[in-house]
Computed example of a mutant assay.
Amino acid sequence: MAGAAVLLVLVVALLPSPYAIEQPGPVYDTLGSAGAGKDRAPLITIEGEKTYPTSGRLDLLTVSVLGTAQGGPSWLDLAEAWIDPQKAVIPLEAVFPRGETQQQADRESAAQMTGSQQSAIAAALSRLGDDVGGTVTVGTVQRGSAAAGRLEEGDVVTSFDGEAITDSCSLQNAVLEHGARPATVVVRRDGATRSVRVVPKRVPDGSGGTRPLLGVATTAKIDPPFTVDLRIDDVGGPSAGMMFALGIVDRLTPGSLTGGRHVAGTGTICGDGEVGAIGGIVQKMAAARAAGATLFLAPEENCGEVVGHIPSGLDVVPVSTLSGAIETLEKVRDQGSARALPTCAAQVGSPG
């Protein structure tokens, strides 16, 4: 009887769970190269415009997710993750909304990365005085989502509830700010302009709450005055945007933004330079410190998750815009430390 009970416990422990595990992923220096052998190439390549030598590092961070649209890791894996401070256990639906296939999830993640790269280029060049324009096109519509039956693949989104849309990030932020209320989405479809009524649906956000979602994957296209190519393989999502933008600015301006320091950071970015919240901030801070970074730029909106989880030896400074991030780097470079700069503890009213 005891043996059967032990066997039953082991079987249950190995069953897939309805959760996913977030853990620190690979780190990439936007000022450096990635890949191996003949495939090794710079993360940022600029042609048709003068660039400048720089120094230091501007690392973008990633989070590895254990779990798929078909099921989460085993309960045994979860038990190990729950006691590991560098890992986080989140509902599987926060990563893979109900009804979404793995193929759809992969396509959406890749589209988010492509969109974030376009936004990074737009934000960086706009900061330097260039006009890049921008259009946002619907790539896929998730089955059962708010957009299903209303938006179509190929629709060019021009506005959301009266707000002009010029990149994928501005659409995402417009939906988040609007919430799960009826909204008018204006699109160009088959050469005609149409107004579509959509009610965003709330889905789990991974932190116990929910967020409004349209349920579309979009692609953004800009028209910069010269060529900027961003390369990063096998990484999805929008959280690399700010660090790519900083890397572009550093390459296009004399001197070094970092002053030779090892800097890391994370955050979405819109074409207007607004920096947004991301997931897995605790895991990314751990990865940054493990890679040798001493300064970390965090989205101001993530401050509540930052406080109490900062690794020893890492200074974390909150930022809300690309201009603010650049000013932070310049102050640290010129002053020699981040001691006089704002902290997340001050932002959320915590001591220290």
Rank of each mutant, 00 (worst) to 15 (best):
A2Q: 13
A5Q: 10
L7H: 11
V11W: 14
L14Q: 15
P16V: 06
V27H: 10
T30L: 07
G37A: 08
D39G: 01
G48H: 08
G48A: 03
G48F: 04
T51H: 04
T51A: 03
L58I: 10
D59L: 09
L61I: 02
S64W: 03
S64L: 13
L66H: 06
G67C: 02
G71V: 09
W82F: 06
Q86S: 14
K87M: 14
L92F: 04
Q112D: 13
A122E: 01
L125G: 06
G129I: 12
R150S: 12
G162L: 06
T166E: 12
S168A: 15
N173L: 15
A174K: 11
V185P: 03
D190Q: 13
R194T: 01
V196W: 10
V196M: 07
V198D: 05
V198I: 15
V203Y: 13
V203M: 11
P204E: 08
D233M: 10
D250M: 07
T253D: 08
H262I: 11
G265S: 00
T266E: 04
D272H: 08
G279V: 07
V282E: 08
Q283K: 10
Q283V: 01
A287W: 09
F296Q: 02
E300M: 07
E301S: 14
N302R: 00
V306G: 04
T321P: 07
I326K: 12
V332Q: 04
L341E: 06
L341D: 12
A345S: 15
G352V: 08
